[in-house]
């Protein structure tokens, strides 16, 4: 009887794996089959010549260039805001935080990590409404607001990965420099951080991937379907994930739909590329805390 159950479970496990991979590859193969043809230069730049578009001499109207540029600016700004705070917070959690404060902070960051991204976006929208009461008509959802909200979204990931990276350092390495007379901050900056830098960087790249894919936050905080190349941080902008969502509900013909499939492939490649880079930097396939 036992033997039967055991072999049933083995069989079932392989079946589960097969089912998961089947589902994954079916969707991706479908995506590639539908979108591969549309990936050409005109998908990016429309009728404009690439050089003109890249030098911002002419606006691109029917290409993905503004959306891709918007996504990259969005990623860069949010990471610029999130990295210093996240890494500093992570260093505090790993090296300084003691006593009763630690479980409290741990729980707080867990909650922050668990907040659905749409709620983060809603909080951003509420911020603008609140500010509008005091400064009428000056504040509107914009690129900067989206960056702030995305930074908030990835903050717990950065704190956690930095904390885990520092906490998993061998005690032998941790204690050598202080024993030789180094101060605590010298130990952190000269020994601990350099030692765990690859883990911290791969955490940062994972957070970048999260910024690139998130649609819910930017939907409520300023992304629009057509805005052209983002001219200012206080203006509206286009982004790749929102373009895909927009096409899915508003496409007018097979050509636009093909563009949507093309955009989906590009976003997929971008996110997988970032993840692959993180894995490559980390070099070993240890699992992270916060398995999103």
């Amino acid at each position: 009887m036992r033997k039967t159950i055991e072999s049933c479970i083995t069989f079932f496990s392989w079946g589960a794996l097969f089912l998961l991979l089947m589902a994954l590859f079916t969707l991706i193969a479908y995506l590639i089959q539908k979108g591969a043809d549309s990936i050409q230069l005109s998908l990016f730049f429309g009728d404009t010549t690439p050089l003109d578009a890249l030098l911002l001499r002419r606006q691109v109207f029917d290409g993905l260039f503004p959306a891709i540029a918007g996504t990259f600016i969005l990623i860069a700004c949010s990471m610029l805001i999130a990295i210093p705070i996240g890494v500093a917070g992570g260093i505090y959690m790993a090296e300084y935080c003691k006593g009763k404060l630690k479980p409290l902070f741990n729980l707080t960051f867990d909650i922050l990590a668990g907040i659905p991204s749409i709620v983060v976006g809603l909080a951003g929208l509420l911020l603008t409404i609140l500010l509008n009461r005091h400064f009428p008509r000056q504040i509107a959802p914009c690129l900067l607001l989206s960056c702030l909200c995305l930074a908030l979204l990835v903050l717990p990931y950065l704190i956690r990965t930095t904390q885990t990276a520092l906490e998993s350092i061998d005690p032998l390495i941790r204690k050598t420099a202080p024993a030789l007379g180094a101060s605590r901050s010298q130990n952190i900056t000269l020994v601990l951080l350099p030692h765990s830098i690859s883990d911290i960087i791969s955490g940062i790249i994972l957070a970048t991937g999260r910024c690139a894919e998130d649609t819910a936050v930017i939907m409520l905080t300023g992304v629009v379907a057509t805005a052209g190349f983002p001219r200012s941080l206080l203006g509206q902008y286009e982004a790749l994930p929102f373009y895909i969502y927009y096409i899915s509900s508003q496409y007018t013909g097979p050509e636009e739909l093909a563009n949507g499939f093309g955009a989906a492939i590009i976003l997929l490649l971008l996110c997988i590329g970032l993840l692959g880079l993180a894995l490559w930097i980390q070099r070993r396939f240890t699992t992270f805390l916060l398995f999103r």
Partner: peptide
């Protein structure tokens, strides 16, 4: 790698 695939895709 699957964790990185965007939900919108």
């Amino acid at each position: 790698v699957m964790t990185g695939i965007p939900t919108v895709v």
